[in-house]
Design a protein around this nucleic acid. Structure first.
Lengths: 164, 164
DNA sequence: GAACGTATACTCGGATAATTCATGTCCGAGTTGACAGGG
DNA sequence: CCCTGTCAACTCGGACATGAATTATCCGAGTATACGTTC
């Protein structure tokens, strides 16, 4: 089991977008440059975020991506599911109904114990991710980083002030 | 994010092995036949379980696999990690230290907020899996299935009694 | 009848292909902003 | 000075290669059993 690399990128980009001017869009090249990511590939994940309703994409000059709603209402789970898909990681193939000792289907009402345990764990994982929001992640960063982010988003080509 | 198919197979096989005679080994062909699984591929996962110390493999006639310890002491997490590996699903590549707005390494003491949230979710997932044991899964099955399993393990070629 | 040696059959283990999915990259469609020209 | 039409540049979106991991399979190494032979 391995999570896509894009999850990390998407989360950091969403946190960065909190610092953008309200209503302003940030192009993907600016986002990619901030973290040194390949913009061509980052586009793929940003597209998924837009399709999932987490971001809003705008075309043309002054276009780009912006958060679709208040950062307080964007959970980490929203971002993860946008990139990874909302399909459960464990899929029960009902092997109890196959093979020499197959159990008749009419005796398999609920999910088997194995699937139930996996589903419970998946729910615990999702509940944990749902309890964190993009706003909370942004608040955990020091104010100095917010300043640098705002300066960069306003003018990516200008030199950044040195660290205090 | 997708879990390997082998996780389901491994869990069901471990639950089935609870019904084996104490000290007796069950060959992989018998395990595969019970659930109608490809024995050649199942061998790969059983090998992983043996390497992880969940099962004990024995060669030669009357050989096969048996549980390495009491089913109460085998958690579902043990089985999942044996098959999937114990590597965390989320790997932080420290992208905050890269790109145009890279943060100096000496200012990155602990993990970043994004990684922390993912690690917490991973811990919740593992804790959930750790709270379930192979013995618990076996106990959740009806007694009739235990009977059928014991009969099959004792003589896989004999016809099974019909369902009551 | 018991012990021993051999051969056999059965088991796991590692090495080897095929397929699927994530990764990485590119170019085209669409849209907005800017500019030049005219009123 | 203001309005309008055209143009151009910038943006995203989908289509196209690449690589790795999972899936799937086979054959060889090793071992305990069973049998036949001998004492």
């Amino acid at each position: 089991m391995k999570l896509s690399q894009g999850v990390e990128w998407a989360l950091h980009c969403c946190v960065l977008l909190v610092q953008a001017e309200p209503g302003a869009a940030v192009p993907r090249t600016t986002l990619a440059g901030y973290y040194g990511l390949p913009d061509a590939y980052l586009a793929k994940h940003l597209k998924s975020l837009a399709a999932a309703g987490v971001l809003i994409a705008t075309s043309g000059p002054r276009g780009g991506f912006r958060l679709a709603r208040d950062p307080k209402d964007i959970t980490v789970l929203d971002v993860v599911e946008a990139v990874e898909g909302s399909a459960p990681p464990f899929v029960c193939t009902e092997i109890r109904q196959r093979g020499a000792c197959a159990v008749p289907a009419d005796r398999c009402e609920g999910p088997c114990g194995v699937a139930q345990v996996m589903y419970d764990a998946d729910r615990a994982w999702r509940d944990s991710l749902r309890s964190a929001t993009v706003a909370g992640l942004s608040d955990s960063l020091p104010a100095a980083l917010h300043e640098r982010a705002r300066a960069w988003l306003k003018n990516p080509s200008a030199p950044l002030p040195p660290f205090a």
